[in-house]
């Protein structure tokens, strides 16, 4: 039972960490940057492995952080030089991801890092990879990593709440009153990179992208308030993780894939049934006024 519990806790932590951070990106119309970063951190992880010869948490976080920020920086520079933003994102993330995948094949069988792992993660192994201090086990490393990144993210959002909120909804005004927009931008990119890498090892790139974008977009359909949106995103992240685990358990399929699919179902429900912006309520309203 504790085995399943640890997996569900890990999934929920991924849901909350990515859901909250990602909803900021959805509001800023930067979802595809999230998609890009969650692919390119693979290069950071592989790079960190080549430098440190291990898959330890700290070098991995640093490597992924660097590559994540580089991704955002490359996309920005290409965009500034006149390349349309969708193509800039497409070129940067496919190049860096391909490089990561090719470098992985040079590592060979030395470590549990391969291309399949990079996409699908190995959440089923999370409970066995525990933090050991003086022979005492303190629970899975992944949970510790995700927990610390989550606390860091919440701390950063709390500290810069006003700046993030203003620069998200009214960048022009934010600029006039002197909010450091560029700083907020790269702050968010750092948060995304850290959330991604903390989640990446256990759930893989697919679920990271899904958890970054889908809960935020779902919450966006359900509320107009910034703070409520963050809360609902976290809640949808948790619900997706729990129901995804249920699906995976019953049919014996990929846990990460099932959690991503579950998030998709919640989005689908919100798009039709949202009391504020749902398809059905819109139809009803339109027919009433026409």
């Amino acid at each position: 039972m504790t085995y399943a519990l640890w997996i569900i806790i890990t999934g929920c932590l991924v849901g909350v960490t990515c859901g909250v951070t990602g909803s900021l990106l959805v509001l800023r119309k930067m979802s595809m940057i999230a998609d890009a970063i969650s692919h390119t951190v693979l290069l950071g992880i592989v790079g960190a492995f080549f430098v440190s010869q291990s898959l330890n948490g700290i070098p991995m976080l640093i490597g992924a952080g660097i590559v994540g920020i580089l991704t955002a920086f490359f996309v920005e520079s290409l965009h500034a030089s006149g390349v349309q933003s969708d193509a800039a994102i497409g070129v940067v993330f496919t190049s860096l991801f391909a490089l990561g995948v090719v470098l992985i094949s040079f590592i060979g069988d030395q470590v549990h890092l391969d291309t399949k792992h990079a996409l699908m993660g190995e959440i089923a192994f999370v409970p066995w990879d525990t933090l050991q201090v003086n022979g005492v086990s303190y629970g899975p490393i992944a949970v510790w990593m995700l927990g610390s990144v989550l606390i860091l993210n919440i701390l950063l959002i709390w500290l810069f709440y006003k700046e993030i909120k203003i620069s998200t909804f009214d960048p022009q005004y934010a600029k006039i009153i002197g909010v450091p927009i560029v700083f907020v931008h790269y702050l968010l990119m750092t948060m995304v990179s850290l959330s991604t890498v903390a989640s990446f090892d256990s759930v893989g790139a697919i679920l990271v992208v899904a958890m970054l974008i889908v809960p935020g977009a779902t919450a966006y359909l359900l509320t107009d308030r910034f703070f409520t949106l963050l809360l609902i995103s976290a809640l949808i992240g948790i619900l997706s993780a729990i129901s995804g685990y249920g699906i995976a358990y019953v049919w014996n399929v990929s846990i990460a894939g099932a959690m991503a699919s579950a998030a998709g179902v919640f989005f689908l429900l919100a798009i039709f049934l949202s009391p504020k912006h749902g398809y059905i309520i819109r139809k009803v309203r339109n027919s009433r006024y026409s």
Binding site: D35, A258, S261
Partner: peptide, 18 residues
């Protein structure tokens, strides 16, 4: 952008499930 991201991750995730 969010619509594309949702479709990419959910369809691919479902593909992995299958």
């Amino acid at each position: 952008d969010a619509a594309i991201g949702i479709i990419i991750s959910v369809f691919f995730g479902f593909g992995i499930v299958l």
